[in-house]
Design a protein around this nucleic acid. Structure first.
Lengths: 351, 351
DNA sequence: TTGTAAGCGTTATCAT
DNA sequence: ATGATAACGCTTACAA
């Protein structure tokens, strides 16, 4: 059978569509008990559910939130998506997701499509290059940026305290006889997150009077191994520090270390950002700066839903929320602890 | 400014809304060049984009596909989502995704919400328990099942050839002096995929006259380590075979092996299903049955879109597509090869 | 070549 | 307590 409409229910209950509509929306205040139970019975029996398309058109509201993620291969993104899905469902919102693959034009298309589709709000992990579009979209539907900032515009932002995270990681890596440290990143990443992480790193390096710097780790495992070997050789026997700027780079680092035959933590002290199951296992445990993904997701949704439900009122000023993360020190930076020791060490945000 | 409507464009171009509509939909056949260029200019200038909500209501078509995934923490799912997102965008469809978290009632809610929202079709990696609902949904919008079957109903299915994959993995693990092999799974998994994998495994084990069986690996690392130690001891010095039924179980296996101090491949030959970056690195390489995720995604979308675009015509009979995977043999099952050797070995589907 | 009008399924206002 | 009606923004016969 074709799909039921509110009219069909009304006809069957011998009432008008508006009465059924009132029932659906819980406006029981002026409705006889008998009508009410009759409608209830029919809806129950037929399994009727109102068309959200028609309802969205009428109400100009969709209870749908659009999420645009830069790179779903990065396990950070899928963890984030899982958290967002859980929490938005709990708040009564549907999630429509798009994946830009770090491609600005795909991102632009996604933003427009989601806006056209009547998203009540957008959560965007932008890959950059759409500053103007994002700013314009804001006065159609609220936008919250995730992790990555759009410098010029005044858009809400939820992010980790990347500066603190990297500074603490540097300190952990260099705690024991390391006098050269490199932050390994990707050459095609121009995001604000990368900038913040590299800037803090270089500042920390200078204030520790240590050698090292930021360098893009080659995609090719052999080339990357050569890079590492060179660093290792130049440090005259003492171990070097290596920090992967994200989970993707860390994957390459692990492979390159294997190819280069560099011992961890003997010849290299390594650390990474974002906590995944493998971090507990590789090299007897890899020191990690764990972003609070659940906290980030919760904050982003809270901000967004507040703006959505406050209605078309005055936008208020831009809000910027930094969620602190944790440093989890493990054997990859510690020769003195037992091989499987895990020591979470909360980091206070202070800036 | 408030959102533009087709009327506003029409007014500005001094034509009627229907003319603008024709323009938008590319019906240029009967339209003067001047009108056409005038409308084009205004749309370009104002950045007008038609409301897809209104259009969906009118056309009873959304160009939106709903995807319901059981467990986004499983990296298989995120890889799948990435593939689906790419391909559906290329085919001109939007993706709305829901994550059931292996919770049947959440899955049910997602199915209904997506149907109400006017999804043109659904791709469902079902967690089970919604057989009737899924069957009913089929005559509202086409459904394609991913991986996991719904026994009774006649719904299209796209899956890996799990039987072949497990059989080949068993053969690889047992190739050299292993006479006991266990398939490690999760205790709460009642999916058809697990059933197919375990059944084939047990058949293979019997025909090889080997000891072993299927066993749920404990969630707790210490308890899991104890399980492994017991297996290892009972095998009288010869190595045991261990196959993780999916990526999630494999994570636990790796941790448990570390805790138990069991050497790979010396004391245990291990293998897993689904290829992730770490598989190339851990233990000098882990033998893997790699599902063809891109192939699965492509097949699922192709099936679904064909049904969608064929319109409300006769459903045709159920289709079941099996996508072959590959066995990638690595050091975790081979003492004779070099430490980092990678040998992809395509597996022909034959059943 | 263009415009008029009806209708997609729902909800809100205002009568009754 | 209930119903008639208009409107949400768009498309599409059909009329002009």
């Amino acid at each position: 059978m074709a799909r039921m409409r509110i009219q069909d229910i009304a006809a069957e209950a011998a009432v008008s569509p508006s009465t059924v509509s009132k029932f659906i929306n819980g406006h029981y205040d002026a409705m006889s008990a008998s009508t009410r139970s009759r409608i209830a019975e029919i809806i129950e029996r037929t399994g009727y559910r109102p068309s959200s398309v028609a309802r969205n058109l009428r109400l100009d509201r969709s209870r749908m939130i659009g999420v645009i993620l830069a790179d779903i291969r990065n396990p950070y993104s899928s963890a984030m998506l899982g958290e967002l899905a859980d929490r938005s469902a709990a708040a009564g919102y549907t999630l429509t997701c798009a994946i830009s693959g770090n491609n600005p034009s795909k991102e632009a298309e996604a933003v427009m499509r989601l806006a056209e589709a009547g998203a009540d709000g957008l959560i965007v992990n932008t890959c950059g290059g759409n500053d103007e579009l994002l700013a314009d979209t804001c006065d159609r539907a609220p936008v919250v940026l995730l992790d990555r900032d759009v410098p010029g515009a005044s858009i809400d932002l939820v992010t980790s305290d990347n500066g603190c995270l990297v500074a603490a990681l540097l300190q952990e890596v260099m705690r024991d006889g390391v006098d050269a440290c490199w932050l390994l990143d990707e050459h095609n990443d121009a995001s604000s997150v990368r900038r913040e992480r590299t800037a803090t790193f270089e500042r920390g390096l200078r204030s520790a009077c240590a050698r090292g710097g930021c360098i893009a780790l080659a995609r090719n495992a052999c080339a990357a191994a050569a890079q590492l070997t060179k660093m290792s050789c130049s440090s005259g026997g003492s171990p070097i520090g290596l920090i992967a700027i994200n989970g993707l780079v860390f994957e390459r680092l692990v492979e390159a270390l294997a190819v280069a035959g560099i011992d961890v933590p003997g010849a290299a002290r390594i650390a990474t950002i974002d906590e995944y199951p493998w971090n507990r296992v590789l090299f007897g445990g890899v020191t990690t700066a764990a972003q609070d993904i659940a906290g980030l997701a919760a904050a982003a949704l809270e901000l967004l839903i507040e703006r959505i439900e406050r209605g078309r009122g005055p936008c208020g000023s831009r809000r910027r929320i930094e969620i602190p993360g944790n440093i989890i020190a493990r054997r990859s930076t510690r020769t003195d602890s037992g091989p499987t020791t895990t020591t979470p060490q909360p980091l206070r945000a202070h800036r």
